[in-house]
Design a protein around this nucleic acid. Sequence first.
DNA 1: GGGCGTTGCGTTTTT
DNA 2: CGCAACGCCC
Length: 764
Amino acid sequence: MSQTAGQSLSQMATKAINRPVPDYLDGLNGEQREAVETLEGPVLVLAGAGTGKTRVLTTRIAHILNEGVASSWNILAVTFTNKAAFEMKERIGQLVGCTVEGMPWLGTFHAICVKILRRHAELVDLKSGFTILDTDDQIRLLKQIIKAENIDEKRWPARHLASLLDRWKNRGLVPSKVPAGEAYTFANGKGAELYEAYQKRLKELNAVDFGDILLECLRLFQEHNDVLKEYQNRFRYMLVDEYQDTNVAQYLWLRLLAQGTHNVCCVGDDDQSIYGWRGAEVDNILRFEKDFPGAKVIRLEQNYRSTGHILAAASALIAHNSERLGKTLHTNIGDGDKVLLRGCWDHEEEARNISDQIEQLQREQHSFEDMAVLVRASSQMRAIEDRFVTIGLPYRVIGGPRFYERMEIKDAIAYFEVVFNNANDLKFERIINTPKRGLGEASLRPVYEYARAKSISLVDSARTLINTEELRPAARNSITKLMDQFDHWQQMAKMMSHTELAQIILDESGYTAMWQKDKSPQAPGRLDNLKELIRFMDEFDTMAAFLEHVSLVMDTDSGNDGERVSLMTLHSAKGLEFDTVFLPGWEEGLFPHQRSLDESGQTGLEEERRLAYVGITRAKKRATISFAQNRLTHGQWQTSMPSRFIDELPADHVDVMESLSFGSPSHSLKPQRMSSRETVAEDIYSEPRWNRHKAQRKITTIEGKARRIKKVHKSAYETGERVFHQKFGYGHITTIEGDKLTIDFEKAGEKRVVESFVEKPQST
DNA sequence: GGGCGTTGCGTTTTT
DNA sequence: CGCAACGCCC
């Protein structure tokens, strides 16, 4: 479908009213259709695995627009991950037939809350340009606070406090509301006190952490009824994806908004709630009908993904959980193959069996792309990878350390942040001595002391002190040189593109050279990542746009370069599907994980069982579950029992495969073939396995991401028009040059900004 | 400030 | 066992 550029969703919608039968409803089953068409009042869509959840969500939005009951900017649609948000935008675009620039309130909880907070920052003691701290910055800050309070850092590590604060924030608790008993769990009663000190410090830095983004937005709504009313009025229809993953703060936030029109539609699956350990509250979905009176509950039970045996096995397993709303999934794809179950002597044999089965499937013309190995813990990946590397089987690891979490990427971004926003103390601390400039703790002490005494930023403190005798000559020279460099880069920013400047900063600061000199095996990869970062930056118009993006979007896509088997944890597999799925490591202690049982008892067990359910339901056609009698853990051989989940599988839907070496350490290398067509397929696979490309662990790239960001060329604004900018506030456009606007701001004066950063004033 | 030895820990991950 | 974080010494 091609659309005239600039045509908005609302125009589309208005036009569509005259269309007789909306074709987007075609092919929906009864329940899906009901979920799409029940627009008024609270709706809970219980969407089982593979029942077309995303389709319902996106079609519902298309329906709202098509019916003309609300405009795109009156629809709030929240997701948990950026990936999910992008996918939704893409699919709505396909349905409605135009770009999604017109869905300003579709995004992650965090992205939407940041947007709201930037508009009303002063009301929660922030300034609109506040920075968002990542976990590293947060820990660094907490360390300083713990130290300042004279608490033993050893006994009370900052990361423990960080996770404690996180849990409080997830529950919507501000320092004053932390229950006394819990406040005493850290540093002999200093918990709440430290929380308060930390929040105070954040305000001084004009910063928020991830938890605050939600909490402050919630506080904004709670304490400023006029603001709440404004948003209740704005959001005529609200949609929430993966509702089972919401935490208390998100629930409270949503409930406040839903008190407006009550048109809130939550989509989720209680059986797939696997993030309890990071604050998700299954109870939110279980309690929905009580929380939202008059709610309609619609169950999607028609599964379009898996064959009968797989679905039956998964359903029987999850039926052992008591805390669930209950669904009966059915499929009409046919019975298909039974779930395979295999016991192995040890994890090495388990890995061999998996690779043998993969090769057999490959001979039968199945693509590696359609196969995945899903593990409970990443420590299991080692054995699998070792085997794949040995036989040269191409594979890719999904998840793992994300691009923006890599040290070199964070360092590089810290440089850019300091150059463009030199008040950013935490980023400054990160790079002041990276690469080594002889600026250790001792040399910098006067800088810290002066900054604290005068309540100024570290950069300003450093700039003052280099003109005095406070610093040792070596440190003074070193800092002077660095400050001159910052000045130099700031000057250059006006003369060249942000990508060129980024390269210059990395080179002139000695950062690139630092990794070039480094002889560790990771160093070349890190240099590649830096190149990748700069290539990615090119997709943004300005450095500021880029930096705003990275502070929220910590997500990467892996490129598709050739067919590979996917290897990932069960957690990262949620939402994905594969023809063939391997589920190794179903042993007591590993799955269900001992720690989960110890820490959360029955609740923990049920969450583990949901994880098992998620695993099985990823499979469209084939699922193989396996367990090993012996496993090397922490360098110790351990013997374990098959998982209790195996006993819970229904015998009728499972085939038990006898492993030749099972029960004895005979290490039979004879492959266990499952298919009788081995000889027929032999010529298809005439090349020996070592002729294939050597498998390499994939370095995650961000190419996938880059594709999605479009550059805006044609201006949607006119000279003289009044616009709003998140940092500078309101102003009038004086000049337009391509996508760059010169705006005379009412408060900030004349600035040159990029078009994508301004918006039309609100007309509510 | 850097290098090296010791210690402790070891599930899942997004924003 | 393998790694990361910390502390001590030069």
